[in-house]
Simulated scan of single mutants.
Amino acid sequence: MTIQLSTGVRNALLDSIETAIGASAILKVRTGAAPASPAAADAGTVVATLTLPADWMAAASGGTKAKQGTWEDTASDAAGTAGHFRIYAADGTTCHLQGTITATGGGGDMTVDNTNFAAGQSFSITGFTLTAPNA
């Protein structure tokens, strides 16, 4: 039998992710595929860097946890096609979370309004939700 978690345990697990990463996390959108794990060296060109709101995720509910507040940048760092994201502690160097990034409706772990970045363009993160096991 597969181990199953109660909704309360799933929610606590998800809320602990935001607590471990901390307030005002740094999100970097990068080109290409994500590294093998968050512990691996960064890969790809940084096309955008955002400081997320101090409370950047809503409280977990029903085994999911969604972005909170507005995640946008008025001027991207460089030109390129977004391929993955990494979320760092506020120090900007300790990576804790990574995943794929696609345009809205593209099925990525995180979605943006446009994956083709031009240096200086504005953009918005349109979707990001964490889902606990067996939710």
Results as ranks from 00 to 15, higher is better:
M1Q: 14
T2Q: 15
T2C: 15
L5Q: 04
S6E: 08
S6K: 06
S6L: 13
S6C: 04
T7P: 02
T7H: 00
T7G: 07
V9Y: 13
N11A: 03
L14P: 00
D15M: 05
S16A: 12
E18L: 14
T19I: 13
A20K: 12
I21G: 01
G22M: 05
G22I: 05
A23N: 11
S24A: 09
A25V: 06
I26N: 03
K28G: 00
K28P: 01
V29K: 04
V29T: 04
R30F: 10
T31M: 08
T31W: 11
T31N: 09
G32F: 10
A34N: 04
A34T: 02
P35W: 11
P35Y: 09
P35S: 06
A36M: 05
S37V: 01
S37C: 04
A39K: 04
A40L: 01
A40F: 04
A40V: 01
A41M: 04
A43K: 10
G44M: 01
V46S: 05
T49L: 02
T49I: 00
L52W: 02
P53S: 06
P53W: 06
A54I: 09
A54G: 09
D55T: 14
M57S: 11
A58L: 13
A58R: 09
A59R: 08
A59Q: 14
A59G: 10
S61Y: 06
G62S: 02
G63V: 01
G63H: 02
G63T: 04
T64A: 13
K65V: 07
A66R: 04
K67L: 13
K67N: 12
G69V: 07
W71D: 01
E72M: 15
E72L: 15
E72V: 15
E72H: 15
E72K: 13
E72G: 09
T74D: 15
T74S: 15
A75L: 09
A78L: 10
A78Q: 13
A78I: 12
T81E: 15
T81L: 11
A82K: 03
G83I: 04
H84L: 05
F85I: 01
R86S: 07
I87L: 11
I87M: 09
A89L: 12
A90L: 13
D91P: 05
G92E: 04
T94F: 11
T94P: 06
T94E: 06
T94G: 08
L97A: 10
Q98E: 08
Q98A: 03
Q98M: 12
T100I: 03
T100S: 10
I101F: 03
T102W: 07
T104A: 07
G106Y: 03
M110P: 00
T111D: 01
V112Y: 02
V112L: 11
V112D: 02
D113F: 00
D113W: 07
N116D: 14
N116W: 09
A118S: 13
A118R: 14
G120Q: 08
G120E: 07
Q121E: 10
F123I: 05
F123M: 07
I125R: 02
I125L: 10
T126E: 08
G127H: 06
F128A: 01
T129K: 14
T129D: 07
T129C: 09
L130E: 02
L130H: 00
L130F: 05
T131W: 06
A132Q: 03
A132M: 05
P133C: 14
A135R: 08
A135D: 05
